[in-house]
Structures are given as C-alpha cells and as structure tokens.
C-alpha cells in the first residue's frame, strides 16, 4: 500500500508538471498575455503599407512591449491597412491624441512590430480611437528602387 501511495504521488506530480508546462508554453512562449494586465483597450491605426506585420505582432513604446496586434484588415474605402491593437489597460486615457504609430523592424531581417511615440496634445486617446499619424513599413525593395532611380536621374 505504501508503494502505491508514492506511485500515485509520482503520477500526480507528472500530470501536474505536464499541465504547468502547457501553461508555460501558453503564457511565456506563445505570449497569450503578451505584457497585458487583466484589462486592455483597443486602438486602431491606418497604414499605407504594413509590410510583414501580422496578427500577434508586438506593440511597443520606447522599446517596451505594451500590447499586440489584434487584427489586420483591408479598409475597403481607402484601400489601406486598418490595424487593430490591443494595449495595456493602464495606458487608457494617458496617450495623447497626436500619438504616432510606426512599423519598425527588429534588426535587418527580424520581426516587424509597431512602435508608438506620444506627442504633446492635451487630449488623450480613448478605447476604439484611431491613430492618424502613422509611418508605413520600410519595404526593402522600394528603398532600393528609390535609390536606383535617384542615381539614374542625377
């Protein structure tokens, strides 16, 4: 009977460890809560070109993750990209109205992410507001093309 008790304990710990491992894979590895506290709010931003940005990409401010991209869709009216971001709830009502959003690249070939920079306006962004001042993704091919045509026209 004693042997069976230690066995039960062992199996219990084994199953528990498996479940904890799954939680770890969910939270720390797939970033299901990506720097978000329990509450969150959403902001939208329109970009002319989002490059390789996709659902789940990071949103940072001064390099610190504060949220992630919730969805990316095409605006059928203006034909630009409408990005919905889910941000840390603590920041709601504290980002100024003229906050800018830029699509940045980590390293030369790394992931693309959104960087927010606050401005100086007194009014603040609320849940569901749209950021208008945006900077599109740097697409390498376009840069090269510009460079080449500049060279040619000189």
């Amino acid at each position: 009977m004693k042997r069976s008790k230690t066995m039960e304990l062992g199996v219990g710990l084994f199953v528990l460890a498996g479940i904890l491992g799954l939680v770890f894979l969910g939270l720390s590895v797939s970033g299901l809560n990506n720097g978000l506290s329990s509450t969150s709010f959403t902001l939208k931003a329109d970009f002319a070109d989002i490059g390789g940005l996709k659902k789940g990409s990071r949103v940072t401010m001064a390099g610190v993750p504060i949220g992630k991209v919730k969805s990316v869709e095409l605006d059928q009216e203006w034909f630009d990209a409408r990005v919905t971001m889910e941000l840390n709830g603590e920041l709601e009502g504290r980002l100024s109205e003229d906050t800018t959003a830029a699509i940045l690249t980590s390293g030369l070939l790394g992931e693309q992410y959104i960087g927010l920079t606050v401005g100086g306006a007194p009014d603040t962004l609320e849940d569901g507001d749209v950021i208008h001042d945006t900077q599109q993704a740097l697409v390498l091919e376009e840069l090269i093309q510009q460079f080449v045509s500049n060279m040619a026209s000189k």
């Binding site: 590895v29 797939s30 970033g31 990506n34 990071r58 992931e111």
Partner: peptide, 9 residues
C-alpha cells in the same frame, strides 16, 4: 519577445 510574437498557441 521574439518568441512570443511568432509562436501561436
């Protein structure tokens, strides 16, 4: 963070 951005649960 790179891991979290690219791994989907």
């Amino acid at each position: 963070s790179n891991m979290q951005a690219s791994v989907s649960f």
